[in-house]
Amino acid sequence: MKEKYIEDLSDIKKIMDRSTRFLSLSGLAGISTGLSALVGSGVAYVVIFKGNDYLVPGAVEIAKTGKAHLLLIALGTLVLSIGSAMLFTVRNTKKRNQRAWNAQSKELLVNLLIPLVTGGVACLILLSRGFLGLLPPLTLIFYGLALVNGSRNTLPEIRNLGLIQIFIGLAAFQFITYGLFLWVLGFGVFQIIYGVIVQKKYRQ
């Protein structure tokens, strides 16, 4: 009889989690987005930042082609990371016999996108006016806020990853010249570390 009630309580908890959280987020998605960020920032360093003092608090003089290249590199990185993250996550949902597009993943997506799109638009405006130095801190901070906001709807570890990104973003505001390095640390290194943690913990 005791076992029946312990099982009841564990069932209740499972259903509450499953009905509010999208738990099939793949650790491999974290690793692949981190690797995409490393590649993207490497290309950006070679093409844009190497030999130029663009990472300063104010606006810089940069040719239109330079802005276009940076935008292109950012878009490429975004497509690569979102594409690979979706691939691994959809594969994970199939393994668990769940649908990738359900009430929980929709809620997660909406909650991630609100801070993310806000930050994205703000960064596009800043880029068009030449404020390159503000892009690393702001992308980190808005990404961190998006993760904290979305963490209610997915694996609880995501909240801490979000807080780390916010913290690194604030550091990048203080040390603007080190922006690219801190960007690599947040979007690359910590993203990969969390991917590995999630992958190990949930044995996907």
């Binding site: 209740i12 259903i15 509450m16 009905s19 009430a103």
Partner: peptide
């Protein structure tokens, strides 16, 4: 009953759920 317990568990943590969402969940 397990199904009724499951229905209630899901509905107390969600504002609302439609029939198909409950079906998939349980």
């Amino acid at each position: 009953n397990k199904t009724r317990l499951g229905i209630m568990s899901a509905l107390v943590v969600n504002d609302r759920l439609d029939f198909n969402a409950l079906k998939e969940l349980l």
